[in-house]
């Protein structure tokens, strides 16, 4: 299993200097990917923009959206953005897409919330079918496509169009359940081999309260679930090791750990915890 790390694009206090330093260190460290979350209504950075910046100062790591909310973007523009990051970074993009969980993102983007599932399928088909490929460059081939979500239709879309599944987070047992569903869907749709499985978690090894405060704020929209997400924050080397081992046993291919504190020292602490 590979271990990747999230970019601090949703944590308060991230500027260009920090983002680039974070990316450089991750590229030099033991991590296999840099990933970004997507949210409109928040003081956060747009994921493709952040990945483009990170791509410019890195040479090795994969650059992933985990996940980008597809239906918020007009399809051709979404593909244009993704293909551009892919081209600029030397073909390192993993495009994780989903329909997201927040109504308000759709409202401020002026996008109809109803029918988002069907529109999302159309976007995935547009990518896979290669619609307008000869007119809307750069080339999209080689973009690794992941689909997230927990519903039956999400798994079906994943198996129909994607290369793998992006899990939304939770204990290893929850990931194992989702992995079984992803494999079942993959088989049901008659795909050869098996889906790539990506997992994710949050960590905060230095200032735990600051990290927990961020999670409480970021997930306030989930109401009572925010406290559960805070409780699951990995705040010790031991917790990280257990988590990594649990995900590996559950069949995860790539585990991305997202920071809750925007401080480059966190990267070193994480590298140490994962290695030790």
């Amino acid at each position: 299993m590979n271990v990747g790390v999230g970019l601090p694009t949703t944590t308060p206090g991230t500027d260009g200097t920090l983002l680039l330093e974070w990316a450089r260190r991750a590229d030099a460290g033991p991590f296999s990917s840099l990933a970004a979350l997507d949210r409109v209504v928040y003081d956060s950075l747009e994921p493709f923009t952040a990945l483009a910046a990170a791509g410019a100062v890195t040479a090795r790591v994969r650059l992933a959206t985990m996940i980008a909310i597809g239906p918020l973007r007009a399809t051709a523009l979404l593909v244009k953005q993704a293909a551009s990051v892919h081209a600029l970074s030397g073909r390192r993009l993993t495009l994780g897409l989903g329909i997201g969980a927040r109504l308000e993102d759709y409202e401020v983007a002026g996008v109809e919330h109803r029918g988002r599932g069907r529109r999302f399928s159309e976007q995935l088909a547009y990518l896979r079918v290669g619609v307008d490929e000869d007119r809307v460059g750069p080339a999209r081939d080689g973009i690794e496509l992941l689909v997230g979500g927990a519903s039956g239709p999400a798994f079906a879309r994943m198996a129909r169009y994607a290369d793998g599944y992006a899990h939304g987070g939770g204990p290893p047992r929850a990931f194992a359940g989702a992995a079984a569903r992803a494999n079942a869907a993959w088989r049901d749709l008659g795909r050869p081999g098996r889906p790539r499985l990506w997992g994710q978690g949050y960590f905060g090894l230095g200032d735990v309260e600051r990290g927990n405060g961020y999670l409480r704020d970021y997930y306030a929209f989930t109401g009572p679930f925010a406290e559960r997400i805070v409780a699951a924050n990995l705040t010790s080397a031991r917790a990280i090791k257990d988590f990594v081992r649990g995900y590996e046993e559950a069949g995860c291919d790539e585990l991305v750990l997202f920071p809750t504190v925007a401080d480059v020292a966190e990267l070193d602490r994480l590298a140490e915890a994962v290695a030790g």
């Binding site: 599932g117 069907r118 519903s151 039956g152 239709p153 079906a156 079942a184 869907a185 049901d188």
Partner: peptide
């Protein structure tokens, strides 16, 4: 016995032994 895929946008319930 199988199920679904009659249309692309169906609502399957995948799990072990579904």
């Amino acid at each position: 016995t199988v199920a679904g895929q009659t249309i692309a946008e169906d609502r399957p319930e995948y799990r072990r032994g579904f």
